[in-house]
Amino acid sequence: MPVETWLTFVLGIMIIGSVVALELKDILSAIIAIGIVGLGVSVAFLFLQAPDLAIVQFLFEIFAIIILIKAFIKKDYHVETPSRINLYLSGITVIILVVIFIFSIPIFKSLPVFGEPLMTTSQYYLDNGAAETGAANLVSSIILDYRAYDTLGEVTVLFTAILGALTVLRIKSRTKMEKR
């Protein structure tokens, strides 16, 4: 079977999973449904010949699920039924999004066809990457040699995000300080 058929199948499952994740009342079910989407992305990466990304996506998805479950599972979580105005507003949003989707179809038609990318810069990397960097894994040679500056920026962003999370969690609130 061609790749397109498989991808359509996986993407269909992912769309169903995402809608389910957003509409379910129970928090644990919602997080598990988001797991369907993330692991679907991992499978799609495998079909698209990107084993590097499949591994990384799989592991990070598991980690994200662990973080979400550990943070939210014991809170007494209950969703109130939305009021009528909210239902109307969601309906209007859906209509607007459908309109956006219909108008965006010509844009997607103007893109290159699936399976025939342009590859203007990356052909150079494919031809000379192994000889210039000595790495067999060309993705790794790009992120750590040709575009290592990007990776430095990425490490900085990760550092800042984690630092923010640590600071937010460790700071004592004002009421607690007054109690002590």
Partner: peptide, 16 residues
């Protein structure tokens, strides 16, 4: 590859 990692960092920040 870098984008996935940053996404997880942002998710952690938002969860915090």
């Amino acid at each position: 590859l870098t984008s996935i990692v940053i996404e997880l960092g942002i998710t952690a920040l938002l969860v915090a």
